[in-house]
């Protein structure tokens, strides 16, 4: 039996120990720890290149709504614009244009491409996306968001962009 006096002394000691141990317990490492460290430190490289084209410049090159499909602008940031393709009120695909000057590896992946869409180097990325590179700089992508939107649909929708206009953009 511990006397009440000892309890009064021991309780705060145990409590402090508990706090100390739990405070020092390392969090489980994450696969994103490294990139977090690199991009959150002072003076980190900006996420978007200084001279990247404004997303608002891209809007005019997107396809317009077609019978059965509604095109809805969704995001417009520096170096990037995205429009959604809805069918019957449901999102079935997304269309995007991005400036690869912020992500050089995005352009590099087209170097080994053997396929072409509308004359531009094309790649399949993952299982849901088809992309092309225009003027070695602007990436045009179509991603399926519903199984009904097939890889063939993606190719067809890429061809609906005003690619000639985008090629002339500086």
């Amino acid at each position: 039996m511990i006397s009440p006096r000892w309890r009064r002394i021991l309780a705060p000691i145990f409590l402090s120990l508990l706090l100390l141990v739990s405070a020092c317990a390392p969090e489980a490492p994450s696969r994103y720890d490294q990139v977090q460290q690199e991009t959150s430190r002072r003076g980190a490289e900006p996420a978007v290149a200084k001279d990247a084209t404004q997303g608002s410049e891209f809007n005019k090159f997107f396809p317009k709504s077609a019978p059965g499909y509604q095109i809805v602008p969704a995001q417009e940031k520096k170096g990037f614009a995205e429009h959604k393709v809805n069918k019957g009120g449901k999102n079935v695909a997304v269309l995007s244009i991005s400036d690869t000057s912020s992500v050089p590896s995005a352009a590099a992946k087209y170097q080994n491409s053997t396929k072409k869409i509308s004359g531009y180097p094309a790649v399949e990325q993952g299982s849901q996306t088809t992309g092309i590179l225009v003027n070695d700089r602007y990436q045009v992508k179509v991603s399926s968001r519903d199984p009904s939107f097939t890889p063939q649909d993606r190719v067809a929708w890429i061809a609906k962009f005003n690619l000639n206009g985008l090629e002339r953009l500086n």
Binding site: Q75, S96, A106
Partner: peptide, 11 residues
């Protein structure tokens, strides 16, 4: 969701 959409499109 928006970050992932953008990241996926920019890669």
């Amino acid at each position: 969701r928006r970050l992932v959409e953008r990241a996926y499109a920019e890669l």
